[in-house]
Design a protein around this nucleic acid. Structure first.
Lengths: 242, 242
DNA sequence: CGACTAATTGAGTCGCTTCAATAAGCGTGG
DNA sequence: CCACGCTTATTGAAGCGACTCAATTAGTCG
């Protein structure tokens, strides 16, 4: 049983639509699980036994071909929902990119609870629609953009999402639904070059070359391999190919 | 006002979860609209004023870059749901590929009705999750598959989906939820080469060359430019790169 | 039958990948 | 604290797959 009142993401996660009592009830059959970096929470195609809220850390959602080519289909940041409610099989593999904590529910119990609380189902719908929207946006990126445009898009998107995470970490009680925090100009990359390649449908060498190129023309700085500093955001926006 | 009892897709569309009375109520503020081939039902980024059920025909859902590159992000077959409930802006452009008919609802009225009928919202959730699943599957295709694998995947997927449409046309009253009809070996392509290219993130020439190659090695036959006959389905499955 | 569009085929180019070598971080233990 | 080894990233050179540009052929419809 988890302590929802102290939950870092209770204001942004799916739980935020519930009353205190309802949240306590849902929390009574959820529990917190630690997922170590590299550990896989669920495998694509296997039985969908659990759903979860990400409390902190970061996970990648991925699919792969039988011969081992991988495509990352999403990233799950704190407060994101994870898993396949009402479905018997997992649609993707979920692996922790850094040590993470998730609030885990058995799928069937969560399903039943959702059916009794339509507002939860409604919030799930909105979240799923949002994910669908960004997945489709990513289709355009993968299908039609050049390597340079992919990198620019990635940096802008990451800057935006990381800002939300940081915002929530700094002050998780004050919530401004819909209000977007200012994007970060200094990003600590949560993923290595190979994973950037797997997100953008490129190779590690191409990612590296594009980074070097952006640095050479003064658009970004690379203080160390996990940090990107955006010097010319406008340039990135003009060259993201949107 | 539309006549739901005579609706060709009432058994498969989102309406199927409603009681007869509810369906009549929903139908009372829906109306049937004809969309001619090439006509656009909604533009990406504009106000989300309507949602719709596809009754018959076929529409493409697409996004584009500012310089005109297009990516098709989905196809809407009869009984598919179209639009952005609970969202103020359209997430994609929807254009009829052939003369089509849709059952149109004003978005706000549909939203209100959905909130009063949780089972409709629940069905919407399941459909959205399904679309998300296939969108993510498509990310793997666009990001990691070769042109040949893309074409193979496309033919198999199309064969599967067209079979469902034909099944429903032949006998729209007998419903076997979950039961998949046998995939078709003779497909009438609902799209031209350019649109196949826009779906697969390729050029028209590459699509054409891949088709020619498959014909040369005896995997398919091309009786005319809108027909593909699958001679060796197993080969396609082995070379679809899943 | 002739004009138009869609599709195919060919030749050449380009961008990304592949393969290979070097360099830079980073943790460990001396 | 620095040397050492390991992992991760960068850079270079060569190859190839898909694209571009261009010409031809095959359908389609008045």
């Amino acid at each position: 049983m988890s302590n929802c009142d102290a939950c870092l993401v209770s204001g942004l996660s799916i739980c935020s639509v519930l009353t205190t009592d309802e949240r306590t009830e849902l929390g009574s059959f959820g529990h917190i699980k630690t997922v170590k970096r590299g550990q896989t929470l669920q495998w694509e195609g296997e039985d969908s036994l659990f759903v979860a809220n990400v409390i902190d850390g970061l996970l990648k959602l991925s699919t792969a071909t039988s011969d081992g080519r991988e495509q990352i289909v999403g990233l799950a940041f704190p407060s994101d929902f994870l898993g396949q409610p009402f479905h018997s099989r997992n649609g993707y593999t979920a692996t922790a990119l850094v040590d993470s904590r998730v609030c885990l529910f058995t799928r069937t119990a969560f399903d039943a609870f959702t059916l009794e609380h339509p507002e939860l189902g409604h919030d799930l719908l909105l979240r799923t629609m949002d994910e669908l929207k960004s997945a489709r946006h990513w289709l355009l990126l993968l299908g039609r953009k050049s390597a340079g445009e992919k990198i620019s898009s990635f940096l802008l998107e990451l800057s935006r999402r990381m800002a939300r995470v940081v915002e929530n970490q700094n002050d998780n009680q004050i919530l401004c639904p819909g209000a977007e925090p200012a994007p970060l100009d200094r990003i600590t990359l949560p993923v290595d070059r190979q994973q950037i390649a797997d997100i953008l449908g490129l190779t590690i060498e191409t990612v590296s070359r594009q980074f070097s190129h952006l640095r050479a023309i003064g658009v970004i700085e690379l203080p160390d391999r996990r940090t990107v500093e955006i010097l010319d955001r406008a340039w990135l926006q003009e060259n993201a190919g949107n």
